[in-house]
Amino acid sequence: MNRRLLFTELIRRHEQNIRKTIRVRIKNGMDADDVFQDLSMHILEKIEHEDAESLAKWDSKSWIATVTINFCYSVLRKTTSKKSRRMTDLPDDDALERKAFQKGAGLHHEDPSRSVMHFNMEEILSLLNERDQTIVILKLFENRSVEEIDAITGLTNSSQYYKRAIEKLRTKIGVDRFKDQYDDFFPKD
């Protein structure tokens, strides 16, 4: 199977939707075209290395949307992280201001009472089946109502699927173990 030809056909068929999804999310002066090119390379690499049995999932619009959304978040995360790093590289002439910035920007690595854990959204969502992934993305990232999700997915009880999907994710990630790392009296300001 020539996977490159497969990719070309696939990316062309979904290009309009992918571009639309990117445009909605990438707004901070970044070039959506560049993101589209990078995403194309990312999808090509994934398709070339995908198991033959799993390849069929790339035909699904919701899967492509999932990958696109995750990629956008990853791009945004990288950009934000670069900006944060640039800020911390400021000359040390105003230590007080810098300290204030660190608190405000949420860089808690110097605070032992707090811990930060980074998740790869694509990996986490892959723990769910395709239907649940679509529901979670529509609900969490696109802020769609239950009625809209029902209409898009053709389900009549998407809220229940959503609830179960979130419960499943909580269990898989082991959210409860983080409770031990935070005390309930941590000031909210």
């Binding site: 199977m1 056909e9 033959a52 069929a56 790339w58 035909d59």
Partner: peptide
């Protein structure tokens, strides 16, 4: 002919 894994196609 092409080996395609996608049902729609």
């Amino acid at each position: 002919n092409q080996d395609i894994p996608f049902l729609d196609m």
